[in-house]
Simulated scan of single mutants.
Amino acid sequence: MTPVPATVEIPGYLAGTWKADPVHSEIAFTVRHLMISKTRGRFTIYDVTLVTSEDLLGTSVAATIDLASIDTGNEIRDNHLRTADYLEIEKYPTMSYRSTGIRQTGDGWAVDGELTLHGVTRQVPLAVEVNGFGPDPWGGQRAGFSATAEINRRDFGIDISTPMEAGGVVVGDKVSISLEIQAALQK
């Protein structure tokens, strides 16, 4: 069976350059804490650009995230996360993502790309859901995407391990990443 072109499968799909709207987007993470719960956080300052092409498989994504903008809802924890124990923002002020390809999966899309964090670049695929394309009330066009990924912080040289008396560590190795992006078409 011949696959249907991707642009036909996404109603309202438009080729162009899109910028994430920070008021309606979120870059968030979750990590285990004390082996019994999860701590959530987000980054509040970032630049995300998507370039959709006539052939959806030619679409690209580039993002730069200001690591100082980390917000877990606790100023003491946020300040500790900015130190050399974790993000080391004095030396590595940003993290970046650059797509290297896009492919259709059984139930959605995958964006393959390179994440650079803490001076280390690794391949990190994003599982992407296209939420839609459509007009906004101001005469522009918007597109919405949800994406998830999981990384191991140790793969990026963030290897602090504070052991717990009963076993395990204070902060888990796996970090779940979730993105909710509403992007505006640039004129």
Rank of each mutant, 00 (worst) to 15 (best):
N79P: 00
N79S: 09
L81F: 08
L81V: 01
R82H: 00
A84M: 07
A84E: 08
D85V: 06
L87Q: 05
E88L: 08
E88T: 06
I89K: 12
I89G: 09
E90H: 09
Y92T: 10
Y92C: 01
Y92R: 09
Y92I: 05
P93A: 10
P93T: 06
P93Y: 07
T94F: 09
T94R: 06
M95D: 02
M95P: 03
S96W: 06
R98S: 14
T100S: 15
T100A: 13
T100Y: 11
G101E: 04
G101A: 15
G101V: 12
I102C: 14
I102W: 08
R103E: 15
Q104L: 05
Q104V: 02
T105S: 14
T105H: 13
T105A: 14
T105V: 08
G106L: 11
D107R: 15
D107Q: 14
G108L: 05
G108M: 02
W109C: 10
V111S: 03
V111P: 04
V111C: 11
E114I: 15
E114H: 13
E114N: 14
E114Y: 03
L115K: 03
T116N: 10
T116A: 12
T116P: 08
T116D: 00
T116V: 05
L117V: 00
H118M: 02
G119T: 05
V120E: 12
V120I: 14
R122K: 15
Q123I: 13
Q123G: 05
V124I: 09
P125T: 12
L126G: 01
A127V: 07
A127M: 03
A127Q: 13
V128F: 02
V128W: 01
V130H: 04
V130C: 09
V130D: 04
N131A: 06
N131T: 02
F133G: 05
F133C: 04
G134S: 07
D136T: 01
D136L: 03
D136N: 15
D136M: 02
P137D: 11
P137Q: 09
P137T: 05
W138S: 10
W138E: 11
W138A: 14
G139L: 07
G140Q: 08
G140C: 08
G140D: 09
G140A: 11
Q141R: 12
R142L: 13
R142V: 03
A143M: 13
F145Q: 04
F145W: 08
S146K: 15
S146P: 01
S146G: 12
A147K: 04
T148F: 02
A149F: 11
A149V: 04
A149D: 01
E150D: 06
E150T: 15
E150P: 01
